[in-house]
């Protein structure tokens, strides 16, 4: 193990990690937004949009992120649309993540009984208020585990970004291996970087989960 090598290239990893993190955070937040919109459309069965949402979810869940990225990065320019690799990465992540988040929310929404909705209606709330104050908060606490699994899943999916020439963690590792043949060191640093980022995220989610679920379900 070449520790000097590790020391020398750590800053490169840090930079790549920050880039990866930056894109993941943006991608995840937008995915949550998209997922929420999709689940609203499906919950209220809004005509036409409901159809489109179902098709989107199927399409997104049944194609690999890599293919989606290739389409954005190499396919779209043929149609005259040029996107930076960062934009591709975020759009790709949101396209993928939106459907996973939508499904996570939906499993939560489906778990709330009709009686809850009806008791909300019977105190004079509108459909939207029932959703906002009664259904959604309960649905979120039910779907938190699926939801946090998705965040971690999306973060790991970023490893394919290197395919669209984004200098993320995977890209740096492959680069170093290609240049110096320090395979062990480069991979060790890659794994370490992912762990350093993911373990705290996992832990934070576990805490959030416990807090959120406390109100409705006890410990």
């Amino acid at each position: 193990m070449d520790f000097d090598f590790i020391k020398q290239y750590t800053p490169l990893y840090v930079e790549a990690a920050l880039l990866t993190l930056n894109i993941t955070v943006k991608g995840v937040l937008l995915s949550i937004l998209l997922g929420l919109i999709c689940s609203l459309v499906r919950y209220f069965k809004i005509p036409v949009l409901n159809r489109i949402t179902v098709i989107y979810i199927e399409l997104s869940r049944n194609t690999p992120l890599l293919i989606q990225l290739f389409f954005l990065y190499f396919g779209l320019p043929k149609l005259g649309i040029m996107l930076s690799s960062e934009a591709c990465a975020i759009i790709g992540l949101v396209f993928l993540g939106g459907s996973y988040m939508a499904e996570a929310f939906r499993s939560g929404l489906d778990s709330i009984s009709d009686i809850q909705k009806e008791s909300g209606l019977s105190i004079g709330l509108t459909n939207l208020q029932v959703f906002r104050y009664i259904i959604l908060p309960q649905a979120i606490s039910v779907s938190i585990p699926a939801f946090s699994a998705n965040v971690i899943f999306l973060f790991k999916e970023t490893s394919v970004f290197s395919a669209v020439a984004l200098a993320d963690l995977m890209f740096v590792a492959k680069d170093l291996i290609g240049l110096y043949y320090k395979t062990d060191e480069a991979l060790l640093m890659l794994v370490t970087a992912y762990c350093i980022i993911l373990l705290p995220i996992s832990a934070v989610f576990r805490i959030i989960e416990r807090k959120l679920r406390y109100a409705g379900f006890g410990n």
Binding site: Q116, S119, L121, S122, I123, L125, T126, N127, Q138, A215
Partner: peptide, 22 residues
Amino acid sequence: SMHLVRQHIGMVFQSYDLFPHM
């Protein structure tokens, strides 16, 4: 306008229907 009407009609159901998260 049913939500406005329902403000004037109280209803209690058989199953315990309190909102568990509040």
